[in-house]
Amino acid sequence: MIEALNSMGISNGMITSTAITIILCVLSIIAGRRLQMVPSGLQNVAEWAIGSLYHFFEDIMGQKACRSYFPLVGTLFIYILFANYSGLLPGAGHISGIAAPTSSINCTMAMAIIVFVAMQVIGIREHHGFSYYKHLLRPFAFLLPLMILEDLVKPVSLTLRLYGNVFGEETVTSSFFDLIPIGLPVIMQFLSVLMGLVQALVFSLLAAIYIKESLPEEEEHL
């Protein structure tokens, strides 16, 4: 069945990413099915995870912005974390059907474009019109090309950072495996556990900061 999907042009990364999405959806539905005032079991775990994530982003974006835009950045964090860790599954990248989605540039670029579009949409909505784009003229008007370039480079750097980290880490692990199959790859695997978390954090943190930058300034100190 996986071979049939592969021959249709659906890559292993896409299959894994769909599986992650389904798993996350099912977990969320189970955790939120019978909500209790005193949580227990899965609901407790989910509340703890989402609560600590929420407080983390609240510190960065501010109370009001976090309330509106936490769903986007929080989802990005959880999805990227699971996507990075799916590369640690046994046989990932060699067995067909399992591969870290973030080790493909298509996946990371799609997420970066989502963040870029969200920046524009949120900026226009919060400024009530196209006055959002006045920030491009702010320090000096003649810096306009530079400011436009700076905005356009943001999704590119988001894409390349995540893709480069995950892809590079996987390539280095596999070349370590070719050198000494026993022991040496474990070090890189341990590092990649750390790296998966940090990269997920960095991607969603940068998304949060970019979104916060596109908000009107007077709301910053709320």
Binding site: R161, Q199, I209
Partner: peptide, 11 residues
């Protein structure tokens, strides 16, 4: 966050 910016250069 600043590490991520610096690290992206070597990436």
């Amino acid at each position: 966050l600043s590490f991520a910016f610096m690290e992206s250069l070597s990436i």
